[in-house]
Amino acid sequence: MKKFFSLLFIAALAILLLYVVSNMPGMGEEDVPTRQNVIPRYLENAEEETGTENVITGVILNYRGYDTMGEVTVIFTGLAAVIAIIGRERRGKNYAYTDLSEIASSVIVRIAIIFLAPLILLFSFYTILHGDVSPGGGFQGGAIIGASLIIFTTIFGLWESTSRIPQKLRFPLEGAALLSFFSVGAIGIIGGGNFLTYTLPRLTTSLQPAVRTWLTLLVEIGIGVGGAMVFISILFALLREEGGVVGY
């Protein structure tokens, strides 16, 4: 009986939602509200105003740069929350790592990962660098780097991963995302424009688009590296346990 009622409820909900959807303007029609105001400008002018072929990258990194900065801050808040609860690694203190497994990892999987890991890494660089002409960008590329590190950690163990990518290296790079944003934004202010306008002072107009493209690229790289390092730090912090002996 209970199942019947839940089914009935779901059916009623489905009918309601379908009714609402059927009253919405069709996808891609001329009179959709979102196509009236800001979208046409993005679609028409994005390429020359931001110097990126991919409109989405232009919107994320230029028109709505502040928004993206907020998103980067959200990632940092996640890291801060994890660290507030678990804490960073401290010098001179010993940590046990939870993956001291007695079950050795499979040779086949290890060899396959050794073969594929460079390709995955290069693919993530491609995703970061070609954010302006293809789907992708800093966040996505950073996530791919994080994913490749996850398999590395599951197969080779956490101790090895943390020693290969030490905190000394991770800590400065984590700030790369915000830092690149602020510095490139500040360049715009120095150049006499708005924050994040990607203009350099006293540049001939013919050089302007190229400069914009390269600065966008710089921001993308910053977001990618910073995001990847934050993901990796969260992973390491979650897998770690305090108070044991370092090593196997």
């Binding site: 060899i111 050794i114 890991a117 460079p118 890494l121 290069l122 660089f125 491609y126 660098l129 590395f152 290969r164 990518i165």
Partner: peptide
């Protein structure tokens, strides 16, 4: 140029992280 830089960087990084290069 970007590809040359990236592939050289990837090769050295993956050699450092994986601890071995091409079987």
């Amino acid at each position: 140029v970007l590809g040359a830089i990236c592939s050289a960087f990837t090769a050295s990084v993956s050699a450092a992280i994986l601890g071995r290069v091409l079987d």
